[in-house]
Design a protein around this nucleic acid. Structure first.
Lengths: 216, 216
DNA sequence: TTCACGCTGTGAATTGTTTCACATAGTGTA
DNA sequence: TACACTATGTGAAACAATTCACAGCGTGAA
């Protein structure tokens, strides 16, 4: 069985995304080259980690000059981005949904939130942060017609599974789930859970443990 | 050097938080016992993983009856929760900040968002989702006076480091960072980054890769 | 009372990720 | 040209997380 070309781990992909933003910032500050240890400081990891991640790209650095920022960014983009901007659908236009719309609105060339969905009739057919809001009943058909490939789930826990099922029926390939439950999906669909509740409990737990260490 | 008692990994803590919510749901459905494979299905992991995680608690199951849900929940709580409800401060009352306030407002006995902070004068001194909003200038003093131990950073990237510094000066032990940058903190402060941008790029990347596999 | 079943608890094996450490190479200096 | 310096690229080691696999036990059936 042939090894897949883009054989990069979940975590490595996340770091590449971060590096790209850090590189953009350096570029705006007039830099054109960068060393692995400089990126490492900014990304909060080790220089070795940065070099390993860069091994996944087809970009070489020079021992004396480091990496060319432009080339690094191009390398990251060729791995992370698809050829055309990716269409994203958002289910749930509550507080969180609106925050997500505002966050991605116009700021990301590689993603466009093409359609939002909500069951609240007062939201339906309005345009929120530049995005048309459809009734959830039309989710499957809109996702299919617009060829939306990624779905964001920002509905309450109780409705999450149903919305996920509909996204899948519409044919999405990936889902980002903000609801504090695990959802079932057919094989061939990738799910990323962003469990804010669990994250806060982690922070509280490790904060408490650090303070115990500090206090001893 | 004595081994710390609560020696649990980051990921395991996150799963315990999830298990607790799943158990609560089971309890509400009238169940009183549960097997590892039932939890595993709901949590999206393997039965062995569930049993390993439960090893971190001081709870034993019975081969014939599984685990007592009440005892499991108590075990999880004794690890995750502190004795008193934990005070949390929130910096940034924009779209995201309000979503976070709404999400935690009154629903979590173990956390209370005690104070919010913003630089916008039209938000300051108002009460939003039951939480008083202070000017950022007062962050350090309010955090110190209220003995807030966990900070949530929901401000734009450019202001994140400054807000983090102030939280640290106020004496927080843990931070949850939603800004799409890595922040520097003194040793003894735990930081959890929730990088939504990186998460969406991960979803898009793996979705694309899955579709390639599917298409071949 | 005895037996068969199926789940728990866990040592060992496996898999995945990060760090180490060093051979190699590009640059500036003399 | 030759040398010293420093950072890259990467095999190998270390470390961390997950899964396997099975001994042992508690229960219900006969």
């Amino acid at each position: 069985m042939m090894k897949l070309k883009n054989d990069i781990s979940d975590k490595a992909v996340g770091r590449l995304s971060l590096y790209r933003r850090l590189l953009q910032e350096l570029l705006e500050n007039g830099r054109s080259q960068v060393f692995s240890h400089e990126l490492a400081i900014r990304a909060g990891c080790t220089p070795a980690q940065v070099r390993r991640d860069i091994m996944n790209l087809e970009v070489l650095g020079s021992p004396a000059k480091g990496y060319e920022i432009q080339k690094l960014m191009a390398g990251i983009s060729s791995v992370l981005d698809s050829d055309a901007p990716q269409k994203v659908g958002l289910a749930g236009v509550g507080n969180l949904g609106r925050a997500i719309l505002a966050y991605f609105s116009g700021r990301t060339p590689q993603f466009v939130i093409t359609a939002a969905f909500d069951s609240d009739p007062t939201k339906v057919n309005r345009v929120i942060h530049g995005c048309r809001c459809y009734p959830v009943d039309e989710l499957v058909s809109v996702v299919r017609e617009e060829n939306i490939q990624v779905g964001i789930v920002a509905v309450p826990a109780a409705e999450a599974q149903q919305v996920v099922d509909e996204f899948c029926r519409g044919g999405v390939l990936g889902l980002m789930n903000f609801a504090p439950v695990r959802v079932r999906v057919p094989v061939g669909v990738y799910v990323e859970n962003l469990d804010v509740m669990a994250a806060l409990e982690r922070v509280a737990f490790f904060a408490r443990r650090l303070s115990a260490v500090r206090g001893e």
